[in-house]
Amino acid sequence: MTTASTYTYQQIASAIEHLTTHFREQPSLGELAEKANLSEFHFQRLFTEWAGVSPKKFSQYLTLEHAKNQLRKGAPLSDAAHGAGLSGTGRLHDLFVTIEGVTPGQFKQAGAGLVLQYGVFDSPFGHYVLGSINGKIALLHFLNEGDDPEAILTAAWPEVTLRQDSANVQALANQIFPSNDAEALTHPLPVLLRGSAFQLKVWEALLKIPEGRLASYDQIAEAIGQPTASRAVGTAIGSNPVGYLIPCHRVIKKTGLFGGYRWGTDRKQAMLGWEAARTELSVS
């Protein structure tokens, strides 16, 4: 299944890869259009519709200097951690996401006795599989060609009973990537996570990074009260099971380099540029 939105992202991603690899040479519109297999006119229009800004403006958001400026501004992370035990929920940042950790018993049982409903949906960044347990988001994993959604879900929740039910999960998907203002998130969106106390603290801290802003691994470590644990923080970020919504893509190296991403560096760069453009448009 390849919808128009996903096809758009696939074309944009190839151009972004070239743009970020050769940004010092300032690739021409013609070069980028060729990578997307489009005419210059259609590429410019498609890119601007997707990103909200021109390719040239978008490229400014992906430069090392822009990233360093964002890090210097700093994200308001000082009050990110609520302690090691996250058995309850807490209201977090402007996306109204609430994190709930599974009970110790549920963690040990790896989801035994629970039913996980799932569906595959489209987004500005390609297809993703979304899993839900009792109406709470349990996984959001972006898909590459050849990925098996059920294998991905089973790896995260080994003992759950899987049930494909896109209709019931659709309402959650609509709130993550709303197609119109009527679907925009207006109430807390619950996320159920299976992880250690340390991982939950890190994932909760990520929710404090506003859209369009960046934080370093060191800043996250400071925010959770463990300033020497930046390496462990990086490992926890790399194992985040809920892509985009828990914004691990907003964490970069303190040098300003974007670093890797569980779902591909091109997708990370696309997300960062897309969010930077949305943020600028909302305040202009």
Rank of each mutant, 00 (worst) to 15 (best):
E280C: 03
F107V: 03
N180P: 04
P55A: 02
T186G: 15
F198C: 05
A33F: 01
S59F: 01
T279E: 12
D266T: 11
L130M: 07
P55Y: 04
R267G: 05
D165M: 00
S28E: 08
P210R: 08
L143R: 01
W263N: 14
Q164Y: 04
I220M: 11
G85K: 15
R72C: 06
A33I: 00
S166H: 03
T63D: 07
R278D: 04
F47D: 01
S282H: 10
P76F: 01
A81H: 12
F107G: 00
A33H: 02
K208Q: 14
S123V: 05
S59P: 05
P247C: 10
L192V: 05
A13Q: 10
R24I: 11
L19P: 00
D266L: 12
G52T: 08
A13G: 05
L143T: 02
P104V: 14
R72T: 09
L185H: 08
T48P: 02
L95M: 15
I16L: 13
L172W: 07
A13F: 07
G135D: 02
E159S: 11
W203T: 08
C248L: 15
G256C: 12
K57E: 14
V283Q: 12
Q219K: 10
W203P: 07
L19G: 04
Q44L: 11
R24A: 12
A171M: 08
L19F: 01
V97T: 10
G88T: 08
D148R: 10
G195Q: 12
K136A: 06
R24H: 13
T20E: 12
Q219P: 00
S78N: 13
K253P: 03
Q164V: 01
E150Y: 05
T48D: 02
L153D: 07
L86Y: 09
P149H: 05
H42F: 11
K73I: 09
N240W: 07
G52L: 00
T48L: 01
K268Y: 01
V191M: 10
K35Y: 04
S179F: 09
I209F: 02
R72K: 15
I237R: 12
I220S: 08
T186I: 14
A15W: 01
D218L: 09
H22C: 10
H249Y: 09
A67H: 15
